[in-house]
Simulated scan of single mutants.
Amino acid sequence: MTVNVLFAAMYERWKTYENPLKSAFSAAGLDVALSTDLPPEQVDYIVYAPNSEVQDFTKFTRARAVLNLWAGVEDVVGNQTLKIPLARMVDHGLTQGMIEWVTGHVLRHHLNTDLHVNGQDGEWRKEIPPLAEHRGVTILGLGTLGAACGTALARLGFDVTGWSRSPKDATGITCLSGEDGLAQALGTAEILVLLLPFTPQTENILNAKTLAQTPKGAVIINPGRGPLIDDDALLNALDAGQIGHATLDVFRVEPLPRDHPYWAHPKVTVTPHIASETRPETAAQVIAENIRRGEAGEPFLHLVDRSLGY
């Protein structure tokens, strides 16, 4: 039987996803009618991006699941019209891309690469970094991305601590949770990586109080979500020397406005939300597998817990 799949995302996404999705459906043995325009009452699954025009799900009376193209679901999880299962995107390409970006910037700050890249002025600056085993790296967030990045850094020899709201376990990482655990995790965070989801509980988790709990001169790396950081508090901590540098890939408003203080601050590196992007080829395989599962009566992968918001 033909399965009707609605692609509900911006048109430029359709151009990059159409062929990979069709190939993945074929490889999974699925007979799929894939379109950007289907009668709502005939839709079985929705491949979705939260900036889609589709915001009212009540019309999709036979739909079985919404399959998000992004890892983040904060812009859809609270939609009161969405009553069917919602799956977030967890795929190899997304995870590997994040590992590479995070590892690259952790090594950049660990080795103080900026000193030599930006200091080509004839001055012989011989500063020897410690070994990775003597560098404390803390990951806030031990979901799929955080655990993968932390494990990769641990394999390089870094002393990695991870913190999550609920208890977790990850290879090579000292795992902490709860309010006391957060203070402990921040206390060893010479390099602090933010990979938490954005929820009411995590908004401004880096604020004046928590920034002060990090070692003086700590580095902040944020490829997670912009609202995890109180921007004014971070700027004050940078100016005071409590934070040595911030490499930021995500922001409350994107693109980051041209007049935002981060652009001109000498201790801030801005990257344009490139830490990790959903790759159509690998994401299509994840979507096809979830549709195969739905058709076979098997549990969906990567379902969002509405009570937690991720």
Rank of each mutant, 00 (worst) to 15 (best):
R125V: 05
E41S: 09
A233P: 13
A183Y: 06
L145Y: 05
D121T: 07
L235H: 10
D91W: 10
Q285M: 01
A65E: 09
A185E: 14
E18W: 15
L145D: 04
V250L: 10
L111K: 15
N79D: 13
I84D: 06
R293N: 11
V102D: 08
T282I: 01
R64E: 11
A237M: 06
R293G: 10
E254S: 06
G244I: 01
H302P: 03
V268F: 01
F60R: 15
N204R: 08
N112K: 15
K22G: 10
T151A: 07
Q285H: 00
E53N: 12
D231V: 01
L228F: 04
N222R: 12
W163P: 01
T144W: 04
L34A: 10
L235A: 09
R165H: 07
L21G: 03
N112A: 12
K168F: 11
P266G: 00
P20I: 00
P257F: 14
H245W: 08
R108L: 12
Y262V: 00
M10V: 05
D159I: 02
E74K: 02
L194G: 00
T58C: 08
D121E: 08
T144Y: 03
A288W: 09
E289N: 01
F300H: 11
D75V: 01
F25V: 11
L195Q: 05
T144N: 12
D37E: 14
E127H: 14
A24E: 04
T81R: 15
L303P: 08
A49M: 14
I46Q: 04
N236T: 11
S177C: 15
A132V: 11
Y45T: 07
L94N: 06
P299M: 12
S52K: 02
L248F: 02
T151M: 06
A275G: 06
I139S: 14
L94T: 03
E133P: 06
G97P: 05
G241V: 03
A65W: 03
A152N: 04
T81H: 14
D239Y: 07
G224Q: 07
L67F: 11
I287Y: 04
L192N: 04
A154Y: 10
E254P: 09
A189W: 09
I220P: 02
L182D: 04
D75S: 14
A185T: 07
T2I: 13
P200N: 08
W101N: 12
T58I: 10
A183T: 04
P215A: 13
T269L: 00
L238R: 01
F251H: 07
M98N: 13
L131W: 13
A185H: 10
A132H: 11
W70M: 04
F57K: 10
P129W: 11
L38M: 13
L196K: 05
E190Q: 13
P197W: 13
A63M: 12
N4K: 11
E295K: 13
Q213E: 09
T16A: 15
H245K: 08
A185Y: 15
L195I: 05
N118K: 15
P20M: 03
K126I: 02
R135A: 15
G309T: 02
H245V: 00
I274T: 05
L238F: 03
